[in-house]
């Protein structure tokens, strides 16, 4: 239909200008040697991409990103499920807990990182442990378990309650008769969970779509690890908290200003994000009712 093209013409122009054009420009830059040493870029071919393979910082970032990604997505799913089961149904004071659990949702990623960096939640805890209770113990932020754990916890703090909201929306769509029938036939609450609640959540395309979004968001995560960079060697490359995002952040802030190198890293990662976008669309079209 002709009028349909009239409606979508502005967005096509917009997507071209702010999406396709910059990515194309970035691709061109990634084939040059633009940096503060070479302000007039020369064409160097795929040299930037080749050097990625041998760069230890990239492999370090891949390892850290994987830990962060897998940790957050798994823990968020579990915490969301736990909270959803806890909050499902009607009871007195439900509204109060509902409001409390909504609070983290508006927190920006950078504030999230600040909240869970050592100076906030660990400071008082350590004082209490070490001086207050005289145990001589304290939570050492230099331990991998502690910094990975805290970074993952920071992300779960915001997205766990959101997972809960989505799972509750799914659970509220289950016909009430199913639960009533289970009660009449004398099923235990664990059986109800295993036979009705869990399958409904796991099979939902909405949850699948949400999880793909979490994967892509945490694949490009930088705010939370960035707030930790202050504690673990801030401007040095290749620290154990350098996700791809933080690595590129540090490269951008460094005096070398190796723009072509950053473009090469970002575009290599983009291949992954396209795959995820396709996956998301596959899940989302079911609940959108066709694309």
């Amino acid at each position: 239909m002709k009028s349909a093209y009239l409606y979508v013409a502005p967005i096509v122009v917009a997507v071209f200008t702010i999406g396709i054009l910059p990515v194309g420009h970035a691709f061109y830059l990634s084939l040059t040697n633009l940096s503060s040493l070479h302000p007039d870029p020369e064409f160097v071919g795929i040299q930037n991409y080749q050097s990625l393979i041998t760069d230890p910082n990239i492999w370090n970032a891949a390892r850290v990103t994987t830990i962060f990604l897998v940790g957050t997505v798994v823990v968020e799913f579990l915490v969301g499920l736990y909270l959803a089961v806890l909050m499902f149904g009607q009871f007195r004071g439900r509204k109060f807990f509902d409001n409390i659990l909504f609070v983290p949702i508006a927190i920006s990623p950078i504030v999230m990182g600040v909240l869970y960096s050592p100076n906030v939640v660990l400071d008082d805890l350590n004082t209490l442990l070490y001086y207050g209770l005289n145990t001589g113990l304290f939570i050492d932020t230099r331990l991998p378990v502690v910094y990975y754990g805290m970074m993952i916890l920071a992300d779960v703090y915001v997205w766990g309650p959101l997972m809960m909201m989505i799972m509750l929306a799914i659970l509220n769509n289950i016909p009430k008769e199913q639960f009533e029938a289970a009660e009449v036939s004398g099923a235990s609450s664990f059986q109800v969970f295993r036979k009705i609640t869990l399958p409904a959540i796991v099979r939902s395309p909405i949850l699948a779509a949400m999880l793909t979004l979490r994967v892509i968001d945490n694949f490009k995560a930088y705010e939370i690890p960035f707030t930790w960079s202050f504690w673990l060697g801030q401007e040095r490359l290749g620290t154990p908290i350098d996700t791809f995002g933080v690595l590129m952040f540090k490269l951008l802030s460094s005096p070398d200003f190796a723009l072509s190198q950053i473009a090469a890293i970002a575009l290599t990662l983009m291949v992954f994000s396209i795959t995820i976008a396709v996956l998301f669309m596959k899940f989302a079209t079911k609940s959108w009712g066709g694309y």
Binding site: G19, V23, L259, I265, A266
Partner: peptide, 22 residues
Amino acid sequence: LTLLILMLRTLSPFAVIVPFFI
């Protein structure tokens, strides 16, 4: 078009920040 709009959402800001900067 839907895929392109979704890709804007999934795009890493670092992929476009260098061109925008220049």
